[in-house]
Simulated assay, not measured.
Amino acid sequence: MKHLFLFFLISMSITVSAQNIVGQWETYDDKTNEKKALIEISETNDVYSAKIIDKFVGDKDSVCEKCEGEKKNHPMIGLVIIEDIKKDGDEYSDGTILDPESGDVYSCYLKLVNANKLKVRGFLGVSLFGRTQYWIRKQ
């Protein structure tokens, strides 16, 4: 029985580590738990990025008024919000995340909690000072 339990733990660990973050993820409001958006994470040459592919709250034709540079007034749908993420062990880091509501850009790391739950952490400076969200893989 002890060996069966150990086998189960090892196989669960391998399953989560074998998964990756590519795919579609649903985001939720931190306070109301209302579904906000559908995000698609993709990978090109070992670099990951994410864009909004659907909105569930507000006007679908809205634009990023508070963004700066080329993203200013860019439609929310299609807006790239995560850039330059690279896999580092079981974490994806060294990139940035855009908060389209404020236009602010933060350092970012992502980590799979399990095959269907992604920890998304945006922060300034040290990762102790920031905000964490959990995204759910779209089934």
Rank of each mutant, 00 (worst) to 15 (best):
M1C: 09
K2F: 09
L4Q: 12
L4S: 04
F5N: 01
F8W: 01
F8V: 04
I10M: 09
M12I: 12
I14A: 10
A18K: 01
A18I: 02
Q19S: 13
Q19I: 00
V22Y: 10
V22I: 14
Q24A: 06
E26K: 13
E26W: 07
Y28G: 05
Y28W: 11
D29V: 04
D30P: 03
K31H: 13
T32L: 13
N33P: 01
N33D: 11
A37W: 07
I39H: 13
I39Q: 03
E40Y: 11
S42W: 13
Y48Q: 08
S49M: 03
K51A: 07
K51R: 02
D54I: 04
V57C: 04
D59R: 11
D59P: 00
C64Q: 02
E65M: 06
C67S: 02
G69L: 04
E70A: 05
E70F: 09
K71R: 07
K72E: 08
K72W: 05
N73C: 01
N73S: 01
H74C: 00
I77E: 11
G78Q: 00
L79H: 06
V80T: 14
V80W: 06
I82E: 03
K87T: 14
G89I: 07
G89K: 15
E91W: 08
E91V: 15
S93T: 15
D94I: 08
D94S: 12
T96F: 09
I97P: 09
I97Y: 10
D99R: 02
D99V: 03
Y106N: 05
Y106V: 01
C108L: 14
K111S: 06
K111C: 01
K111E: 14
N114T: 12
A115G: 02
N116K: 13
V120G: 09
G122V: 15
L124G: 12
G125M: 15
Q133M: 08
Y134W: 10
Y134G: 04
W135N: 02
I136F: 04
I136Q: 15
R137S: 02
R137P: 03
R137F: 07
Q139E: 14
